[in-house]
Design a protein around this nucleic acid. Structure first.
Lengths: 279, 279
DNA sequence: CTTGGTTACGGCCGCCGTAATAATA
DNA sequence: TATTATTACGGCGGCCGTAACCAAG
């Protein structure tokens, strides 16, 4: 007889492609996942995963098993829901500068970590605003970007800011054309600060409402944008010859209030996903 | 997170209406079932069964949960079958005189205890023939009726033979009209023996191929039939005033050869079902 | 050399199964 | 009074989580 916890861990490993992240998402540690997968394989008499320190992928049997494993877990959820209806709602705030283009993957994994009947509301905005909403209790979970050294929250990783430019861009003279989010925005503020300290003149050529908009502006040649390393996508780095000052790294931090199991499951999944993106 | 073993035990209790039989069918003991059900109820936060020493029945929540529990167990079977195809075939011999009209229920529970991909073949016949087939290895499991004192097999219970008569039957004189299975048949033999020992003349008025046929003949008024207590159905007992000798009780015995887990699961289910019928 | 999977191991929870107890018809 | 569920309890297996180890890029 299989035990569902092992099956759940297997499904998480398949999702994250990584035992360590799966362990985080499940709220345990990596050796436990290793053991459980191993024992699951033993009871099934088949190897489910090819594992090496740098690559974990499904075997043929693992692929075949995965669909059934998900059905099994869904049936488990349904059975519990049949007698134990715990309606839950989670509000989540995400700073655009923290996740950028990875928003879709993170939301998918978040949805997966919640019981199917749970509802969630996501609030995309700027870090300062998100933090205020978290502190006033309007949201339960938040992912924000902030400068090193600030207190509070769980640090999921460090992400350097980079000047991103159109491909083939060069900057001859005149004030540096900047592509920014509107104030208040900590990335905007830090970018302006380092430029001023270096005595580099600048002008704002584009102000947009999300990192996707900033990236579009950069691609259109409107100027350079300070963007997180992990969310720059296909945009080019500024060449060192341009002489721009380096931007400081900042931290991606999770703020979490976990009043119930559903929320802490969501928090773990969020942490594992973001941690994965920054690795 | 639920554990599937507890869910399976719950489903078995629902099927058998009895913790003790469920334990037998599952291959464990009754206190374990009690504990697991209790812990299942605790994790679900609902009472699933109303239990008293004489009656176990589903609560409302239990009814709602049962369907989902069965789906869950089916998904579990499917998941295992996806990677671990163990084709198995079981041949079963059942003496008609042992189960009679309860054949359908027993077969249903047998089917339920087997993995869905397992095939089974049932051989209905007379005890002596069944035993020969078992001993020659042609069948894996057998339920037979036999006289007390014989060796071998697992005794599932004792069942008295009774003279069954049409309703309102009376026997004035002349040889006793008998309704019997053809020879060789141990019930036939023992019936004839006790009549001869009591010096009661008899004649055979009907010879049929199954207990259902014998019951039909009795109902049609053709005579009296020696039938197991538990399978007489709605037929009347012979009145004491008729002066017929009492028939000895005989034992219902299971012969089992369990070369694989599927067969032993079937054996347990068979034992639990028959044990239940004789209680 | 760092990230990440495996192995070793100690502690402890929890389950099994026997035995005694209670409850019901 | 017999049958059956519950409670008590000892023993043991197995799981968790820390730490040390190893492999691969």
């Amino acid at each position: 007889m299989l035990d569902l916890e092992s099956v759940r861990l297997f499904a998480l490993v398949a999702e994250y492609g990584n035992l360590t992240r799966a362990a985080e998402a499940a709220g345990t540690v990596q050796p436990v996942v290793s053991q459980r997968i191993k024992s699951l394989e033993a009871t099934l008499g088949r190897r489910l995963l090819d594992r090496s320190p740098r690559l974990v992928r499904l075997t043929e049997a693992g692929t075949a098993f995965l669909d059934h494993a998900r059905n099994l877990l869904a049936a488990h959820e349904a059975a519990i829901a049949a007698v134990d209806i715990v309606p839950s709602h989670i509000t989540i705030g995400i700073s655009d500068h923290a996740l950028g283009t990875h928003l879709d993957l993170v939301l998918k994994r978040l949805r997966m970590a919640l019981p199917p009947h749970a509802t969630m509301a996501v609030n995309l905005g700027q870090s300062a605003d998100i933090r205020d909403r978290f502190e006033s209790g309007q949201i339960d979970l938040a992912i924000i970007r902030r400068e090193h050294g600030t207190e509070g929250g769980e640090v999921l990783g460090s992400d350097a800011l980079q000047w991103r430019v159109p491909s083939g861009w060069s900057w001859s003279d005149g004030p540096l054309p900047l592509v920014l989010l509107p104030s208040p925005c900590s990335v905007r503020a830090v970018a302006i600060r380092v430029l001023d300290q270096a005595g580099i003149p600048w002008r704002e050529t584009f102000t947009g409402g999300s990192c996707l908009a900033l990236a579009a502006a950069v691609r259109a040649g409107l100027g350079v944008a300070p963007l997180g390393d992990s969310i720059g996508g296909d945009l080019a780095m500024v060449p060192a010859s341009a002489g721009l000052p380096t931007l400081p790294a900042s931290q991606i931090v999770m703020l979490a209030r976990t009043p119930n199991p559903a929320t802490s499951a969501a928090a773990r999944a969020l942490a594992a996903s973001v941690h994965d993106l920054l690795a």
